[in-house]
Simulated scan of single mutants.
Amino acid sequence: MKKVKVAINGYGVIGKRAADAVTLQDDMELIGVCDIITDWRIKIAVKNGYPVFAFNDEFRKQMENAEIQVQGNLSDLITKADIIVDCTPKNIAAKNIEKYKESNLKFIVQGGEKHETTGHSFSAENNYGTAIGLQSTRVVSCNTTSIVRTLTALKKAGLLKKARGTLLRRATDPWESHLNGIMNTMVPEKDIPSHQGPDAQTVDPDFDVITAAVKVPETLSHLHYWNVELTRQVSKEEVLEAFRSSTRIALIDYSAGLSANNAIKELMLALNRPYGDMYEVALWQDMLKVEGDELFYAYVVDNQAIVIPETIDAIRALTGIEENPQNSIVKTNKSLGIKQKFYD
């Protein structure tokens, strides 16, 4: 089997996870990671045996002065790759894509970039097929990924009419919590809808969805509360069956001791997940409530991990090595250990 040669630009929170995930695929080869840093983070890439590239000559010199073995610059990495996943900080990728386009290289950007950067936004269970053969796509953000997953499950079951959600957003990534973030306060996003609702519509314009968001002083995960108007009156079990149709939604129980996001994080560590990551949407089934044609539910989102399986599927879609969405999803789920039940 010919393997797709994958490059990663940006070896940070998402990039290191994407790199690790690529190495688990039998149809992909990680040919290098690119960054500008010289600290412990890029040294982990070296320890893992990943070929390291610098963004340009200036940063290459800094890396070599820090005794980091460098294989070349970004331009060299581009010539070796079939596709590049840009995991650089928000708004940086938009400046890099001209390099990718000049080399006729397929590329993926992350949800911090605008939809217009690629003209296509991706979520595997919703629109995998529309990405096949494109030059580029954008894997939507962590919160948007969770929104699209859950609403797609309801839509496919013929239950979704409109959705209204409130997002409690973590303040910063855990490793940066000593540098920035908030303490002893909450910061509402001033615009309603917050950007996640319109972002979900870039994947599926049929969604009637409005979101509001509040930044809260914690770093473990995001928490969503949703009120959905259904197309008809249904039972709770019918709603749960709709959510079970998604292989990337895990139903959990408040009554099983999973009553807070720190408990869910501890569960991921107990399962020996890399970095304690959770790729699934963890949705409380015993909290879920149906009143007539109204549905109320809540779930937790791991913003460092949820986009990783989507990124792997996006690689397959753009390169065309797997045209069947379900085949790709199954393969990705198996490689990452994605489950619908965590402890049964």
Rank of each mutant, 00 (worst) to 15 (best):
E238T: 12
V228L: 04
L258F: 07
M186S: 15
V139H: 11
D253L: 07
K155E: 15
G111S: 10
G320K: 02
L154V: 02
S328G: 09
P51I: 06
G257Y: 04
G72W: 04
L295S: 09
T166M: 13
E322N: 06
L295G: 05
S245T: 12
K3N: 08
S221Y: 01
Q62T: 12
L283V: 06
L288S: 08
F55A: 12
E102K: 15
T319Q: 02
R232I: 02
I83T: 04
F107L: 10
N324P: 00
R316D: 00
K61P: 03
M63D: 15
L267K: 10
I264K: 10
I84K: 09
L336Q: 07
W175V: 12
K331V: 03
I44W: 06
P205L: 03
A54C: 04
V330K: 15
S123G: 07
P198D: 06
L240Y: 02
G15A: 11
A305P: 06
Q62C: 07
K47E: 09
K114G: 10
L154Q: 07
V148M: 08
D76G: 10
H120Y: 13
C142Q: 13
G337H: 05
D204W: 00
F122S: 08
D35Q: 05
N261I: 07
P205W: 00
D277T: 01
